[in-house]
Structures are given as structure tokens and as C-alpha cells.
Design a protein around this nucleic acid. Sequence first.
RNA 1: AGGAGUGUAGCUCAGUUGGUUAGAGCGCUACGUUGACAUCGUAGAGGUCCCCAGUUCGAAUCUGGGCAUUCCUACCA
Length: 879
Amino acid sequence: MKSKELPKKYKSNEAEMKWGEFWESNGVHKYDPMVSREKTFVVDTPPPTVSGSLHVGHVFSYTQTDVLTRFQRMRGKNIFYPMGWDDNGLPTERRVQGLYGVRCNPNLPYNENWEGKISSKKKKEEEEISRKNFLEVCQKQTAEDEKKYEKLWRHLGLSLDWNQAYETINDHCRKVSQLSFLDLQQKNLVTTKESPTMWDTTFQTAVAQAEVEEREKGGHFYDIRFAVEDGSDFVISTTRPELLGACVAVVAHPEDERYKHLFGKTALTPLFNVRVPIMPAEHADKEKGSGILMVCTFGDIHDVEFWKAEGLPLRQIIEKEGTLGPIEYGSAKFPSEKPEKANDVSKQLAGLYVKQARKKVVELLSEEGSCAAGKGAALVGEPKPTQQFAKHYEKGDHPLEYISTRQWFVKILDYKKELIEQGRKIKWHPETMFKRYEQWVDGLNQDWCISRQRFFGVPFPVWYPLDGNCRPDFENPLYATKEQLPVDPLAEVPSGYREDQRGKANGFMGDPDVMDTWATSSMTPQISSHWGTDDERHSKLFPADLRPQAHEIIRTWAFYTITKSWMHGKEVPWKNIAISGWVVDPHKKKMSKSKGNVVTPESLIDQYSADALRYWASKAKLGSDTIYDENVFKVGQRLATKVFNASKFVFLQIENVEDQYLGMENITEPVDKVWASKMNKVIEESTQAFENFHYATALSSVEAAFWEFCDIYLELVKTRAYKLKDSSEGRSALACLAWTWKNFIKLMAPFLPYITEEVWSWHFAEKEDAPSVHKSEWPQVISLNEDKFEGPLIDMAKEALNVLRGEKTTAQKSLRWPIEELVLKGQVKDLDYFKEIEKDIAFSSNLKKEIQYKPLEDNESGFDGRYFEFSVTLSEHAD
RNA sequence: AGGAGUGUAGCUCAGUUGGUUAGAGCGCUACGUUGACAUCGUAGAGGUCCCCAGUUCGAAUCUGGGCAUUCCUACCA
């Protein structure tokens, strides 16, 4: 065999291109549908939101999944590892709106000739386009983004099967989502109802509990005097005086002596002169404010609950846009003792946004004579500043309002116990993450609102019949049939109706809403398995083996997926859930685009190589956050280079050696056996670690062993391997080198797929009949037949080398400088075994030596190991 | 306020079931290097293992109590 031409240096970018194409054209990552379920490993990959670009946080967590998956592939598993794109939903709408300067107006007709052009415009100058045009431009934009994402994932070396990719807006996903909805409907697990719901006034849509976050805001307490029918009065404290017109009751704690006597009486609100009952309520806190407070429709969740429990009237004054409505007082719905005065106030407030209205109301309340009790101004004293916590939609800028609207809900509140039980059946990595799930489910207080008043999403497969006055009958919806799916109720017709009956008396109307994006992504395992449409495929892919995801979406993605799987089939969606941590900045805050992180993953890969980034991601355990640190990329890069150089060296030693001399039976020399037994341990450890999802532990163990291999073992045996290659001593070294090298490539393959594939191709691709290391068999431990070779010989040799190098360094001499005499001290456990190392050190270090030993006294500390002290005297051969 | 995590070298982190002198990498300092490798090698400096108390022959590790910090949840009229 003639010597191959090996590159002088490793060029990561060229290699990444080459092997990326190689994997694709050889179908290395392809799922085989013919293989049984037992031999298949199914990953429920997170579909990232397609709204701009991926960042280092994505690289981090997706790499961790890929590492686990590559291990399983080498264990012989048939891998199902799809990619999904979450392209529907608000993020896409927002991105398109900003990028193209357009806004959806569902009342406009479709314009065939309209073409979206990138042009950012101010909000007021945005072009209004039809719903269909809007959806088209959304789809066009996400398709472009997805291409960019795919390119990055390929470059990073994620071993995804791109044949299994899906987009959550495509026909198949819409079908599965709608099927899911219909199934829940049949099981009586969804309901439509008009009820107070958290509402974002900017996007004008309902939002679910899981999408809400608290933000701290400065605010003020305003003390306002109310009159009582008996002529007395009291003062309430509020941060939201603009809701005065929506006041439906006043409450105090049942045990509050100050107000007990007022229960059952009525109070009169200032400005509006509305008569409201004074009632006891458990949620009133005697210590807070004045102890008595107003109940409005709706200020917060307590208002909603109290309003529901007591059957109070609904006086909604805030409209969907976040402005105060034009309210006519003196009507049945909005009674007033002095309607004229109330309407005068109402006129001044109508059309104002909440913040402006607050200012105005405060202004009016501080006017002389505004107090209904006849005590001058209703506003008492100065407003007191306070830190408020207001609920916000995570993507919105204004506080949420509770507004009563009609929405679709999945009934989850009745099944908290069952859903926690389902969570318990799944193996969480790390285990402690289950607590988060449990706590979230336990604390739920609202059903899951799945309808959104948006456009780019999966429509409800629902129509409503219209009565003679064109009023929809929401209580008796018309559901699509399974065969109709996917269906757009705004374009298609319920069975038994004709298109020309749309919107007409006694006709029908389509449900205009779309589903929450989680209603679709909660079905990712079923989307991949083709639930409901392909039973055989479903049985092979469901439940999945692994769900990887981040911890902040346990309350959404994990929870909703578990919920859906339980509701549809009383199953858990996956056997394992692996929770990745975050990439955080040096101040331990989560890194994100908005924080101005300008480093793109693409440029990092170009600079450091994909393997280097993967190394960094693989160093972090599941569930723990990692500080962004480019130094770790450098370490990864160095490791890859070392793999290249060491491989080159080993390859040059063994390339022309006949196969028969590289068999394991040739490993006869003690030092080689000891090294092989050390490798056995590394293989065992890392396999064990991988099986427990502890890939980072596996990496550490392999990495440490590899550097030791380069620094110690290679140094020890290189002379022997080179000079005595035709003797049994030399062959022992060569066989051990070949075996060790092969195993290192394999052990590192999940982490560094490119460099390992590169060096694998030099020799083993052909010898092992495995074109790709990633489809080769995971290393097995070998039997050495002599278990006594587990002693510290390598450690001694290591120490000998270190002392040797140290001495020479101290003497400021070359490492080739001959040593006159060197005394080496150390400890060894096994006396017989110790005798054997004599020739090895001499041999491998090219040195002659004498070894003396004597028993060591039993350790004073009581530790019961037996030791022998030894000293080695080394002096240079007269070579 | 409740829950979960974290706290070990200047930095990023390992540290299994308690066990001899607490580790690695980076960084720093000094030195070396024509034979796989300067994307290298060798050596050195650097520690109150957050604090206090307890259990133990022995604690980074176990127990109790604090402190700091991150995240989740709740409250905040």
C-alpha cells in the first residue's frame, strides 16, 4: 500500500463543506421506516420560531441534542430526527409587518397583483393589505428564513434527516392541529364561552396564562372618597382610578370592624354617582390601603373571580383597542343617580387610552365638588408613589386588560392531578426540572385559551349558523368533518350550506380566529408520527424517546404537549425530556438578540469551526446555564487540531503494516496492555455517562484520556513502534496504537463530527467497511485476559516522563539531552506486577535504569492500602 | 412569600458512595522546541472549597441555621 497524501494542516471550513455533502449524498442521517420500533430512536426536535435569525443559544441547545442523538446512532439505533419550523403566529406577523411595512386588514379584497417588497415604514404609513395577501407574504418570508436556518444547522453538523422536515403552517400540520381540535371537541374537552380573558390591546388578541409575564412599573396610589347611602363616607385606595366608571361593588374583609356595619348598604361612586353594593370579601386585606376597595370589571383576577362568584353586573368600559368606550349612563346596563353629570364625565373620557384617561379622571376627582358625600374634592391627599407589578403579554408593551370576549378554551383545570401524574411518568433530565412542571400545573387558575384574534395561524375548523337577524349561534357551532381537513372556514363552506349563504340571514359565518401557536406545536410528536392519518407510522414513532427543550417553556411546550397526548390517547408523548440551560452573558443574564449580541453563529463557525462550537456546547451539562466564553471555542479548536495531528502520526505508523499484525492478539507488552485497559475504562465510563444523558461527563473523560494518550503513551511507545516494527514488541505497540486511535475517533465523533470523519476516512472507512464513523459501531471494551494489568504503570511512566522533562527543563536542556542519573520516587501497590515495568520504561524511554523497592509502613491515617516505595535511577543509553 | 438551582484558583468549571497533599482548562510567570503537533511542550505561582454551628478518627462532600446570586411561581386594590 502506498502512502496517502495527507494535508499538512487541517482546514475546518473545507472539511465541513466536504463532509456535509458526503453525509447528505450517502443518507447517513436518514430514517429507515422499515426498522422496528425497538431499534429506533425518536427525537421530538423543537421547532424554532422563524422570525429573523438563530443565535448562539440555539446553537448551544441543538448541539446538545445532536450529541445525544449521534451516540444513539452509533449504538446501532435507527434515528428519527426531524426538523420543524414554527412559522405561524404573532412573531412572524410582527416581523413581516416591520419588514414590508404592511398591515393586515381582513375587510380588504385580495389583490392578485400585489407583491411584497422589503421597506420599513413608520407605523402610521403602513400599507393595508388583505388577509390573503398578508398570509402569502408571511409564507414567503418564513420560507426564506427557513432556508437560512437550514444552512446554519447543516453547517453546525446537526445530524437531522431533512426529509422529515415540516413547517407548522403547512397543510399537514394544519390538518393535525384541526384534527386535534375536533378530537378534543368530541371528547368534550374544548368549549367556547364569553368570559373575561386577558387581552393585549396592542395586538388586540386574547392571550393565555403561559404567555404572560410580570413587569415592574412605577405607579401611584390614589385615595378616593365614596359616599354611603346613610350619609357617611369612606376612602378607598386604588392605582387605577380610570376604572371608576366600571365599579360594580365595594368590598372589605368580613372581619374588618371598621367596615362591618356597612355591609348590605350601598355606596355612591364619585363623578358617576353609581350606586354599588358594599360587600364582604375574603380577598380584601385589612392591612392594605384603607382596607376597603372597589371591584371593577375588570381590574385584576380578583375582580374577575369575585364578579363571577357574586353574579355582579358587567360594566366593561375599556374597549379592545385599549381606549375608554363611549358609555351612556342612565341606561339599564350603566345606571346612575345623576346621569347627566356622569355622561359629561364619560364624554371627556371616551376615546382616551388608559393612561390618558387615568390623568383625566384624577384631574376631575381633584375638582371641588366632585365628592358625592359633599366633602369637596373626592381625591383625598396627594397620590402616593408605589412600585406596581402589572401583567404584560410577553411580546407586548402595554399592560393586559381583562376584557370579556368569546374564546375557545381547552378544559385543563379539571385535570390538574392527572396531568401531574402524566409528567411523573416521564424521565426528566435533570430530574429536578419535574418540580417546575408540577408547580406550574398546580398553580394554574385559568383554562387554556387557544383562540387568537390574528391571521397567520391555523384556523378553527368551525362555522356558526346565523339566525334570521344575522346573529351567530355560538352555542351550536358547525364542525368540519375529518375529510375536509385542512380547512379554512373563511374560504370553505360547512356541509349543507352554499357559499352564497355566507354572512346572510339564516346562513353561516366562518370562525375568524386562529389557534394559538402552541395548539399546533403541542402536537409535534403527532405531527411527525402522522397521528390520525397513518397508523403504522404512528405506531413506530410515538411516543418519542427524547424531547429536548429549554426550561422556560416547560410551562408551555412541555405542558401542552403532555396535555394533548393525554387527552387524545391517555399516553405520555415521550419517554425522556432533556432540558437544556441558557447561554448567559458575563452578568448571568440570558443572552438574546434584544440585548445587542452582534455575534452571529455563522461568523463564529467560520472563525472557530463547527467542531469548536460543538465542543463548547457539549461542555455544559443539561439544565445548567453556561456563560458565553469564546475561550472555550479556542480550546475546542485546539482539541480538533490535536486530533488531526495525532491521527496523522498514528496513521503514518500503521498505514503500511499488514492487517494481521494489528489484531488485538498482538498486544503483548505490559505497558500496552495497561494502556488498553485504561482505554477500556474510558469506553465504559463514557458509554455509561451517555446512557444517562451525561454527555458532558463523557466528553471530559474522553478528552482527558486523549491528551494523556498524546502526551504520555505516544511518547512512551513511539520509539518502539518505529524502530522495532517487525518484532513482537513493536507490533504490540502498533496494534495498541491502531485500536486506541480507532476508539478515540469513535468516542469523539458525537462531539466533533467533522474532524473525526476526516481522520476516519484515512484508514478505517475502508478497513472497517464503514464509510462514515457516525454509522460505525460504538466502541466495545476488549478482553485482555489478564486482569492484573490495571496497576499504576501508566501513572509511573507518566511520572517518569514528567520528572525527566522537568529535570531537563530545569537544566535548560533539550528534551533529547542525555540524562546522567535521575532518581524517581513513587508508590506502587502490587509487587509482582511492579517488576515487569522495568523493561518497559527502559524500552520506551530509551533509557537504562535500576529499580529498588521496599515495603512502606502501614499508613498512620488508617487507610488500609498497601504500598511500596520505589525509586528508579535512569541514565542514558549509549545508543 | 413559596419552590428549584448555584456559590470551589484571576476567569470558566470538574470533584462519584465522607478518606492521604482539593483538580482541569484558560489566563499569568519562567523556560524549552529541526522529526505528528507553535493550533506545541515543560515547569511555576495562585485556594478561608460563601459564613457559622453540629455529626465523625476524618467534611468541599452529611445535618441545621444564615448570607449572596439566578430562575420559576404567587402577592402587591
